Amino acid sequence: MLFSKPPDPDKLNILCFPYAGGNADYYNRWSTQLDESICLHPVHLPGRGKYIQRPLISSMELLITLLIDELDTFRDCRVGFLGTSMGGWIAFQLAQQLNTSCHPVQPECLIICSAAHPDYRSHLPDLSGLDTQHAVNRLGTFNPACLNVLSNPELAEIYLPILQADLLLCRHWQFQAQPVLNCPLWAYHGTSDLIVQHDMMPAWASLTSASFKLDTVEGIIFLQKGPRTDFSNSCTSVSPHYSKR
């Protein structure tokens, strides 16, 4: 199972997708700062964290198929999706696929954190055919913060394959702007984010027929021990807007 706990039928269950190279465990520290009407479910992707021994997935299509197979446990429950960086793209593609197939599980909201509109995925570094040192150098140019981990050979041995698979998944994703989603889409940009610029996010508005808003929060969202008060309040405000099905 990619979900570590069962859904709560009396709450809005928000499925949380991680950024490239990471796992979703950091969402656990947010739970105590959100309203009791919300239950967070970190999505544990194969090849990292508790599933480090499982094969990595470098295909968006394959990952979405796996996620849909796992969603049966959320039937008859209210759900929302939250994704950070790459996780935002995964969350969008999953929501779009569920909408298109009229799946019984439908998200009531999509929350995007520090994720550029999918058209910007072409800006991601191409690591194809590079040896370890050249791949690390290219990643360091794209995101110098990566070097905090990748400059350590032992850590690079663990995390570089994860980053390579995730970047391949994102770069080869066959994004389609249609059909648009029918749920509200709320986007958040961190003021200290050096990779995703604010002007890369407004175009998310074109991907839903429902309401859209773009807010700015201080810092880098996924590096914080917990969401800031303004971010927490925005997430909490999702739940009362929708009645239980």
Rank of each mutant, 00 (worst) to 15 (best):
P107E: 07
C113R: 06
Q176K: 10
D126K: 03
L155H: 04
L139K: 03
D72H: 01
R75Q: 10
S114A: 15
E154K: 02
H189N: 07
T84L: 11
L82N: 08
M86K: 02
Y120K: 10
A145Y: 04
F81S: 14
C102W: 06
V149F: 05
A135P: 02
Y120V: 10
L139Y: 03
P153S: 00
F175V: 15
P107K: 04
A205E: 12
D69K: 15
H103V: 07
Y159L: 04
S122H: 12
P153G: 02
L169Q: 07
T100S: 13
Y159R: 01
A156P: 00
S209Q: 13
F175G: 14
Q174M: 13
I162K: 02
S151H: 01
R121F: 07
L130R: 01
I112G: 11
N148Y: 11
R78W: 09
Q197K: 13
I195N: 02
S101H: 10
I112A: 10
R121V: 09
P161W: 00
Q164R: 14
P125D: 05
P144S: 07
G129N: 09
R78H: 13
T100M: 13
H198R: 10
L124E: 00
A145I: 06
H117L: 15
N152A: 02
N152W: 01
W186D: 06
A210N: 15
G140T: 01
L185Y: 06
S122P: 11
Q164P: 14
D69Q: 15
D72L: 05
H172T: 06
P125W: 02
D166H: 02
I112L: 13
D166K: 03
W186V: 06
G140Y: 00
I68F: 08
N148L: 12
L194R: 11
G140R: 04
A91R: 07
E70G: 05
G129I: 09
I68K: 09
P161N: 03
L194T: 14
I195H: 03
A203W: 06
L94C: 09
C183E: 13
I195V: 04
V149K: 01
W89Y: 12
Q178E: 11
L194G: 13
L167H: 11
A187C: 15
D131I: 03
I112V: 15
W186H: 08
A95N: 12
H189Q: 10
R138F: 10
Q164T: 13
C170M: 09
A156E: 01
G190F: 01
Q174R: 14
T191A: 07
W89L: 14
W89D: 12
